[in-house]
């Protein structure tokens, strides 16, 4: 049974900010990869929701639920088969890649670096949408003063100044993730999309990453959308959470509304324990010790 908190949420928002249009509006978006045959279910099916300015929205769900595809659809990296994504009121599909990149930055999952770029060089790539193109780059093609200041600012905010001249391939996973965030900040975007920012990080780096995202959202007035499989990260970090399953949105709401026993059971098909985070009072998910096989079957039957 799909649980629709979406309706009350949108009406609530409408009363809060009647004049302002959302930072991102996803309207009836369906998508399927080209190589997937037509009789298979959609990767993303008829998804609609809005994200307000300055909001931190988490997209969570099981593996293969379409969360990363949804993020790429929002960034214009994939084209929806039907429906549309609007960024600051304009359809992503009619904007050029440069126009999108000036509004919206994507932090992809960290990937191995084959070419010896330094940290500062990688961050300076974020200035691309603000650069001049073409023949101007022969012989010249230098960063302008504004570029250098933006790069420096991004390095400072992600605490990477000391590592600026190191090669990205020599850094640890957590540091590489911060380089990608710095590159996104150098774009000077108004919206930041993060794909699994804490996926391969150990505990202390997860904490750093969460506080970094929170701080950036506050200081730069960024709208943040992040995909994560970690419900606790979503609970602590996000203002609202979108719960996806099999390409559809099962629930939207604040962490307290979404991270509930019945919803998680419906989406993930397993029982989890939920209590309160001792500091924030937000919901906290704990995996129970694996129940013996027969007990599990009995509980599933009831």
């Amino acid at each position: 049974m799909p649980i629709a908190h979406e309706l009350e949420q949108t009406t609530e928002q409408a009363t809060d900010q009647p004049a302002e249009e959302p930072a991102i509006a996803v309207e009836h978006v369906s998508f399927r990869y080209d190589q997937v045959s037509l009789d298979r279910p959609w990767t993303v099916e008829d998804v609609s929701f809005c994200i307000g300015f300055g909001e931190i929205l988490g997209i969570v769900g099981p593996n293969g639920s379409g969360k990363s595809s949804l993020l790429k659809l929002m960034a214009g990296l994939l084209r929806p088969a039907s429906g549309a994504v609007y960024v600051e009121g304009r359809a992503v599909s009619i904007l050029t890649p440069i126009e999108v990149a000036r509004i919206l930055a994507v932090v992809p999952q960290e990937q191995p670096s084959l070419f010896p770029f330094s940290v500062a060089e990688t961050v300076s790539m974020g200035r691309f949408p603000h650069r001049k193109m073409g023949w101007w780059n022969v012989g010249m093609g230098a960063e302008t003063e504004a570029d250098l200041v933006a790069i420096h600012q991004a390095l400072v905010e992600t605490d990477m100044v000391a590592l600026a001249d190191r090669l990205v391939s020599d850094l640890s996973g957590g540091e590489r993730q911060r380089v990608l965030i710095a590159r996104a900040l150098a774009q000077e975007p108004r919206i930041l999309l993060l794909d699994e920012p804490t996926a391969f990080l150990d505990l202390s780096h997860q904490i750093d990453m969460c506080s970094l995202v929170r701080r950036l959202a506050g200081e730069r007035h960024l709208t943040v959308v992040l995909v994560t499989h970690d419900l606790n990260v979503a609970s602590l970090l996000c203002d609202r959470v979108v719960m996806m399953r099999e390409g559809t949105v099962r629930a939207i709401g604040t962490p307290a509304e979404i991270i509930r026993h019945d919803i998680l059971h419906d989406v993930y098909g397993c029982d989890v324990m939920i209590d309160r985070h001792p500091q924030t009072g937000k919901p906290r998910v704990t995996l129970p010790i694996q129940a013996p096989q027969d007990e599990h079957r009995i509980r599933a039957g009831t």
């Binding site: 890649p97 790539m125 022969v138 774009q187």
Partner: peptide, 27 residues
């Protein structure tokens, strides 16, 4: 010289096509 004028594009393409696209290149 034409290839040289596309040096920033080449820089971004080394980072993967999806990244290049998200940074504003019509890949």
């Amino acid at each position: 010289a034409w290839l040289w004028s596309h040096a920033p594009v080449l820089n971004l393409l080394t980072q993967g096509e999806e990244t290049a696209r998200s940074l504003g290149i019509d890949v």
